[in-house]
Structure formats: structure tokens, C-alpha cells
Design a protein around this nucleic acid. Sequence first.
RNA 1: GCGCGGUUAGCUCAGUGGUAGAGCAUUACCUUCACACGGUAGGGGUCGCAGGUUCGAAACCUGCACCGCGCACCA
Length: 1041
Amino acid sequence: MELSKAYEPQSVEDKWYQFWLDGKFFVANEHSAKPAYSIVIPPPNVTGVLTMGHVLNNTIQDILCRKARMEGKEVLWLPGTDHAGIATQNAVEKALKKAGEIKHRNDLGREAMVAKIWDWKKKYGGIIIQQLKKLGASCDWSRERFTMDPEYSRCVQRVFVDLYKKGLIYRGKRMVNWCPASLTALSDEEVTMKEQRGFMYYFKVEVVGSAAASAASVDASSTEIPNVEREARSTAPGAGALPEEKIFLTIATTRPETIPGDTAVAVNPKDPRYAHLIGKHVVRPLPVELPREQKLIPIIGDEHVDFTFGTGVLKVTPAHDKADFEIGARHKLAAVEVIAANGHMNDAAGADLRGLDRFKARKVAVEKLTELGALEKEEPYTNNVGYSERADVPIEPRLSEQWFLKYPSVEKARDCVELGSAAAPAASVDASTTEIPNVEREARSTAPGAGALPKMQFHPQRWAKVYDHWMGGLQDWCVSRQLWWGHRIPVWRKIEVANEETRKTQQVFDKCAQALSKVGEAGRTDAVERSFSKISGEISYCRTWLETPESWQMEVVTFSEAEAKALESKGFTQDPDVLDTWFSSWLWPFATMGWPEETDTLKKFYPTTDLVTGPDIIFFWVARMIMAGYEYMGEPQFGLSDAMPFQNVYFTGIIRDKQGRKMSKSLGNSPDPLDLIAKFGADALRFGVMRAAPLGQDILFDEQNVELGRNFCNKLWNACRFRQMVGSAPASGASADAPSVVFEIQGEIEPTLLSSDDKWILLKLDAAIREVTIALNEYKFSDATAALYRFFWSEYCDWYVEASKAVFFGTDEKRKANTLAVIDFVLSHTVRMFHPFLPFITEELWHGMGYSTDMPDNQGGKTIMFAPWPMPLDEEFKGHYGLDDCYLHIAGAKYELVTQGRNLRREANISAAKKIHYVLKPVNFLPPHDVEVIRLLLNAETVEVNENFVPPKGTLAARGELGELFLPLEGLRSAEELAAEKARLTKELEKDEAEIAKVEAKLANPNFTQKVPPQVLLEHQQRLVEWQVKRDQVKAALDAL
RNA sequence: GCGCGGUUAGCUCAGUGGUAGAGCAUUACCUUCACACGGUAGGGGUCGCAGGUUCGAAACCUGCACCGCGCACCA
């Protein structure tokens, strides 16, 4: 195949991706005898589009998978998408509104809305999958999963039922994070704290003596302000007592709009200023219109109050603050709700605030306090406010009935992650052990420490600490969401009047209940029993409890469709809520593989090998998957010694723009990866991102990275093109109209014909293979790309290819053939090493260069995907080809001399194009080939070898290990140039002198010479000589001027 | 408040005790038959600050400053 002058990714990428798909090369075989390697994709939102974050993430996964295939592993990369409850429902609702189809989702109703979302999913759900294909992702698409697939949904329901049975899931009225925009509860993880500038308002309240009347000292379950007894008025403060001076307390608050919901004022009982007031009451200023006696709230003592903060007096709003709620519970205070679900004030907030948005209400409340003369001052204040991560509005702590989960398998999940400090990471493998492991998967899972189970490794390990800390302070997880899109909670409920008929039904449950031990109820204090029950042939699980003496409620949980129908026909209604999206995605590593059946896929590929994800979802997803893994894959039938879902977790950095800002739609600073692919090619994008992504650091992304990737691909392409041009016909005789010659790989390398250049590049290749392999084993992708870049560009192209021209422009045909053989050896290894990073161009070159033709079908013959991963050259190979490390030095010295020679040209200010004459005075004999290489690399007309050369005045000289190189000048330079050079040399001389002084000072220090290791001493002595030589050289050059 | 990162060339970052590095940008020269998406050669850094350990510190220790992140939060 003839290669075009520049690499054109557009004409290459789609072709090969289709080829891979047609060949079913991505499909994992669970019956394969090869050792397994598996990754489950972090499922992107089904309605999402590819972002730079996805590019980073999936490129890493693809690199790992492709390398594993080349190492002979059976690879499963399991793809799929997430239904992403809130995000998707919002996106579709927004789109429907924009299209004018609806004004609100209520226009459609639940069923129709959910149907619309399914339509949407079918229409647009494949976009991100197609985009991943553009990127080159080698996922097994035949196993693509969606978190709302029927089978997957059954897993979710099964797990819910199971946890319910275990008593870990309960329903309860609790303080939750309420999002007034999305109108749903959120988990703690979905709330982010943001600093917010506001004001601290100080207002005073009047203290009254009597404890008899109180608007708040009522049953905690009541959420309404009760009627105050008439008697209260007659015993109200001041009524019959002696006139006293009024006492006021000043309270500091940031949320005056919640004053109508205050049901107490709290002080610290140890606070000498206020302790004596405990038991008295204050007059709550709002709502204004209420009679005074309905505004009396007690002063209570509570340790929670920090008397160094504010005024030391805390207003207690149990219905709208988490801490206040707890105080309220301790003191049996009423929780008076004044803010409705949508964030607007309700009737209880009073006439002035009713109906207002909570922030508008704040302003009005301040106005009212001012009017009342209660406001003492307001001062600017910055505090942290919880925001709904999704809707980006402040959340409202709100009392509501929700489902909660006590996390399962916490201990195991916490202990399985390697926290280690000194412990050497299991991944740091000596390059000499990078043979293709021919071991079964079982061997891996019991690998390093004999006896002790291997721990899960986090990369970078510091995240393990974060994980451990979070695992140590788990709060129950609020799993219910007031949405329509998601897995509906599999609970049916019926509330009935306790009439004759229902009592009969209840008796059935009562019987069952007696057979069971009672389990402590976490969420409901009023739950009375739990029982197994048999309804319509399916075992299900239910609870019953009494709501009031006149009614009772039955709750049935099931994942059987038949049972659900039967329940509905009996007047049961399903819980309207859906489950948190993460309640389905935490099952991802096994629910995608056929759980709860013991499938061959699970047997082969679980636990997965690596997980690649962002640290921002370490709690949302990673931690929960680990717990779910232990809980559901730890059961004996799966036969796992350790049920951890993955062996390694790699945390990527976060992609930011070049100013360090997070990429976001609103900032418009997020480039569309598809545009970048169209412009530069997928390989370029992959390489650019990998090169900029050091382990665990955030990535400041710049399009220049991709440009670099593009340039690199082009370099690779052209280096291969060079090989074809010198290989297909003698360089001297190439004619423009020559037909494209069928390319043939050169045969064996002949050891006796190897030049120092050949040996040098083979040794450099060996080093690169080691470096890249080690870097990948340690998940250091930027190190791997840097090593590849350096090897290929700086070593292979800049030196070896240029030096090889000395052969190809010559006449020694045997040497030419042998050089081609070396090039083919190097390129065929290099292309394979590049394949995981640059899948498309390497496949194109693998075929185009003919490297596939010699390989067996399953080892590179069909596709580079299964070509063997390059192994470091072994000792036998090195011995056979005489690859002694000394050639690194020998050829290196030659190249060093060339650089110096080029320097002389520059010093003499001679145009790079001008052919000039050098004289070389070698220390030892130099083979003619090497002289020719030097000549070519210097772009010299001639390099005269003269062992007895005496430089005439005006000759520039450079000295290296191989000898001295002279550039005789014949009055070529102007006086100006001479002056400039004199200045330059003087500067250099100063530097040399300084270096010499530094080393001499060290060597003169007896402390140094006595204490330092001999090798370091030697190094210093040698360095001194080197600098001295250089100095003498520069001095000589100066003298020559 | 606790914890975790970071601070090295104009920019983005490597660098785990022994001569301060890469890419980009920049300067000069070169359109030489793989590649101008290229080549050659330069310039550019008291390694955040202050102490300490050491013969020797960008690196190790202590403290501080600043930037970023996470957790917990006092109204």
C-alpha cells in the first residue's frame, strides 16, 4: 500500500472500526481458556453527550483493554448507560416545554410522561454510544446494558426486597435534603456546600416569666399550632403580677423568614448569662397578626448551643433545620412547617409572608422586624449553604416521609481497600517479569501475600484514605426520590378502616407475625410487626401497622409482577416514589453479568480487574458498588474467596480548561470532543489527552494538546512512509512515475552487519519497551506516552532515521537490506506499543506496512489488536546481536560530536543550507560508516579524517570523546560576528569556570571526600575533568579569535 | 476546624539525596529527496518563604504563606 504524504485520519478511522466490529474482535468469550481481564464502564447518562471527561476516562479504559488483549488475555469491557433519574427527567421535560408540547409534566401525567422519556431514550439514547465508537472504544457492544433494562430492573427490585427483608431498608419521617426546584428529596452526597454572602440579622424578643402558656409545648407529632387555652391568657405574664421592667433577648439569625416556624429559643444551660431564663418564654415576633399568647415559645437549655457564637441565643426551627430538628426531638417541640415543598411560604408563615418565595420572604421578614422595632442590626455575613448539585439551588431541610437504607457489608467493604503507607503497591512490576502471564484467574486473586487476601488497590492510593474516612461515618442513605423516571419502589400499600372484613385479613398476617421474631424498627416507632406472607402463590414480604385505632395499614414489598397485579386488584397502590439512580448503578459490576444467576460470564469475569472513574463519584458509586459487591456476590454459590467488585480502582483527574476552571456548559469552555476528532483525528485526541493527564492530577486541557497528538501521528505516518520509500526502490533511482511497488518485509537481521547506530536504536527500543510497560503497569499513562514520544521522535526519527540515510544513500546493498530489517524490527514493535494509545493509525500501518502478513491469524495476522505486546529484549537476543550497553555510549558520543559540530556552524554563523568542510581528528580509529554518518548529520560537503591535523588560526574546534572536530574558516566572518562570538564564548567560559569552582570546592572539602560513596566521588572527579576540558576548549577557541 | 493535593522556565507539567528537565510558546537559521503537522541551534529557572537534618536538599523534617479540593460545621 502506498502511503499519502500526510496522515488523514478521516479516511482511516471509520474503516477500521467497522472492520473490528465485523470481525467481532471486541466480543468477550466467557468460555475462553485465556486468563480474564475485565472492566465495566462507568455508565454515562443515557441522554448525555460525550465530554472531555468521558474522553479521558474511556481512553484509559481502552488502553488497558487493548493492552490486555495483546498480552493474551480474554478481555471483557462491558458498556452501557445509566437512566440518570433527575437529569434525564429534567432534560426531557425541558425539551418538551421548549417544543411547546407541555407547560408542566402534570399536563401529561405520570404514565404518559414516562412513556415520553422512553421514546426520548430510544431516539437519543444511542448518541453517546456512537460517540464512544468514534473514539475507538473497544467495548463488547453485544453486552451493552441499560440500568432500566427489564432484567436489570428485576435485579434492582430483588435487592430492594432483600434489604427490606434484612431490615436494612425502612420508611421514616425524617429531616431530608429537599430540592425545591426538582421537588424531590436528595441524599447527603447530592448536596454541595457553597459559600454564600448574606447577612446576619440580630433581633430582640421579649422575655416573659410564666411557663404556663406556650405555643409550642405540645405533642411533637403535631405540626400545627394548637389553640391556646383560654386560661393561658389569664395567667399570662404581667397579667396580675407587679409591673416589671421588660427583659429582652437578642437572637442572631441568617434566616429570619423562618421565625414563624420557631417553636423555642435555646441557650446553653452552662451559659451564665442566660441559664436562669430557661423555662421562661419569649414572644416570637412573627407572624405579626397572631395574638400575643399564640406567639409565646419556651426558652430551653440545650448543650448544642455554642455560647461563643452570635449572641449565644439560638432560635429553634425544628421543621427547617437539621440541628434544630434534633433539638426539637430532645425537647418534644412542635415542628411547624412554614415553607412549602416548592420553596414558597405557606399559610402558617402568616399573612405577610404567605405565598412568597423563601428569599423574597426573607426581605419581607426583615422589613416586618424593622417595623416592629425588633431588628437591632444586620451585618454582612458569609456562611456555607447546601446546594442541590443538580438544580443548583439552595436545598431546604424538610421533614418528610422517605425510604432509607442502612448500608450493608460495611465492615468488609471498609477493610478490603489497601490503605497502606509503606507497603509496596502490587502493581510495581519489574520489567523483567512482563512476560505474558499464563496463569488462571484464580491465581491472580490469591497472588501476593500468601494467606492474606489481596486488597483492592486505589490509584493514586491517597483516595483510599478519603474512602476509609467516609466509610467510617456512614449515615443512612435516603433512597427514595419524588420523581417519575426511575425504578419505582416495589412496595404496595393499603390503608383501611378497621372493619370486619379487613380484620379478617389482618388476622392472617397476625398469625404469620407470631411465627417471626421481632426486629428492632429503625425508622418507625409505630411499626408493630413484620411477617412473611403468601399472596397469589409468590412469597413476598409485608409489614402491617396501626395508623390509628380506627385504621390500619399494610405494606407489601415484592418484585413479582404477578403479585403486584394481584395486589392492585385488591386495592393496594404502589408507592409513588422511585429509587435514587445510584441505587441501581451500585449493582453495575454484577447485575450486568447475569446476577442473580451463576452465569459463566460472572464466573469468568467477576471480580473485574480495573475500574476507571473520577474521584467525584467515589462515594456516590465506588463505595456503594464495593458494599453491594460484598453483599450480593459474597454468597457461597458464587464461590468467591473475596467478593470485591474490582481489584484496582484508577481515579482520573478532573478535566479543566487552561485557566483551571471546571468545564461546564454555562461557561462554554468545554470543547466538543467530536469536533476535535473531526479536526485532528481520534488518535490525536487520545494521545493529547493521555499526554496531559498525569496520575491523579487535574488536567488543564488545551486544544494544543490535541494538535501535538495530530503532529505525532503524522510523524509516525511519515516515518513509515520513509521506510517504504527506501525499501521499495533504491533511493537514488526513485522516479516519480514508478508504480506503487508491492512492499515486502526484509528478512532476518544479520548480526555482523550491524552498525553502532543499529545497536544503539535496538537498545533504545528495549529501554522504551521496559519503560512503557512499567508505566502502564503503574497506571502512569502520561509517563508511558512521554516515553513513547521521546523514543520515537527524539531517538528513532531524529537520530536513527537520519543516520540510516548514510546507508540508503550509499551503495552497499547488503547493508541496506540489513538496515531495512532493523527498521522493520523497530517499527513493528513500535507500532504495537502504540496500538493501545493510537488504535486507528496503528491498525492502518500494521496492514499497510505488511507487518500483519507473517503473523498467525490470532496473533496479529488479522488485526494488530491481537498482535503480541512487545517484550523487552532478552539476554539471548542481545548476545546474538551483540547488543552490549557500551553501544549506547559509543553511538551517543558520535551524536554528541555531531551536535557540537552543528554548534560550530552556528557559531560561525554559516547558513544551515551551506555545504561546508570539517576536519575530524579521531582519538581511535573510526569506521568509515561512522564518518559518513557524521558527515551526513552535519550536512557537510566533506569530513576529512586527519589524525595529524594542526588547526590554522581562525579554525573553530569542538572536542568530544571520539576526537576533535574542526571547522576551518577562511575569512568567512565579519568583525561584528567575531565580536558577538567573543562575547558568547566569554560568557560560556565564565559558566565553565563557575562549574569547575563548584566541583573543586566540593572535592577540597575533606568532609565530602571522606564521607561520600566512592562512586559519587568518582563522578565528581570525572565531572571536574570534563569541565576543565571544555574550559580549555573554549579558551582555545577564544585564543583562535 | 480536620484532612488531602499543589507551589520548579512565559504557559502546562516531569523530576524520592549527587551537573535543573520535557512539551508548548519564543529567537535565529533552513522549504535539504519521510514529515513545515518538519529540521538545526539558541535564549529563558536564587525550584513559594524561613529554619533544620546532611559532605551535599528542588527532593527529607519543622513552621509559615498562598492556590485548589474534600469532609464537618455556629444559628
